[in-house]
């Protein structure tokens, strides 16, 4: 089964300048992700995997190389256009959930919808659907403070899916959860991937994720060191 390439990265490099010292966080990475794929990038902390994720999602700009989403070169976009890419084409899930503390679960899911100027009624319907999807129908009106870590991460996943992005990018989504809850989140991501044919890229050092991935890439010192099919591989 071959499907369209949705995301491409060519010779991606990201060098941080810390005073006079240059640190290469990412040193030449090439990647192709197909529509509907579940890709896991494994690496220890400091291997450059978060930097890679930020570049893929248009949250940061590479020092060298380029990222294409559906053939669109992100390096050619203005800051505002890049913000629109983040709004409509990608959805981020973070290790520390990063929910807005003053907003309810529903408010958090609706935030990207309102940023995209979706009418209130439609936003309400959509947030209800998404919170049902992640299994939080009963907790819609709770604020992050009143939710468990796993529940918060479910809200974050619902929020990432709000504007029906092409790709969901998850940065250590299980890193701040206990084993059982982490497993639930992995399961949820897998469901989203299979049932919605949602492309998912996860960076982490959680070996368990390799079991659900279509493809596993290992990273060290800002470079890919091995690529293999995951156990759940369907390619």
């Amino acid at each position: 089964m071959s499907s369209a390439v949705i995301l491409e990265a060519e010779n991606l490099q990201r060098i941080y300048k810390m005073g006079s010292v240059e640190v290469g966080a990412l040193r030449g990475v090439d990647l192709e992700v197909h529509h509907g794929e579940f890709v896991v990038i494994l690496g220890v902390s400091g291997s450059g995997k978060s930097t890679l994720l930020h570049l893929l999602g248009g949250l940061d700009r590479p020092t060298e190389g380029r990222v294409l989403i559906e053939g669109e070169d992100l390096s050619e976009l203005s800051d505002n256009q890049l913000a629109d890419v983040r709004l409509r084409k990608v959805g981020f899930v973070f290790r520390f959930f990063n929910l807005m503390p003053q907003l309810t679960a529903r408010g958090n899911v609706e935030l990207p919808l309102f940023l995209a100027d979706v009418p209130a009624q439609e936003a309400k319907t959509r947030s209800t659907e998404l919170l049902d999807l992640v299994g939080l129908s009963e907790r819609r009106d709770h604020r992050p403070m009143e939710l468990s870590g796993g529940e918060q991460q479910r809200v974050a996943i619902a929020r990432a899916l709000a504007n029906q992005p092409k790709i969901v990018l998850a940065d250590e989504p299980t890193g701040n959860l206990d084993t059982a809850t982490g497993a639930d989140i992995i399961q949820l991501l897998r469901e989203v991937n299979e049932e919605q044919r949602q492309t998912v890229i996860v960076v982490c050092h959680d070996q368990r994720l390799t079991s659900v991935a279509d493809r596993v890439i290992e990273m060290r010192d800002g470079q890919f060191v091995s690529k293999r099919l995951g156990k759940g591989g369907k390619m």
Binding site: L59, N80, D84, L87, F92, L115, A116, N163
Partner: peptide, 16 residues
């Protein structure tokens, strides 16, 4: 700062 980061990650423009 963090909330502002979140807003931007979600796709808020600087102007917003």
């Amino acid at each position: 700062t963090r909330e502002i980061g979140i807003m931007k990650a979600l796709g808020a423009r600087s102007r917003t």
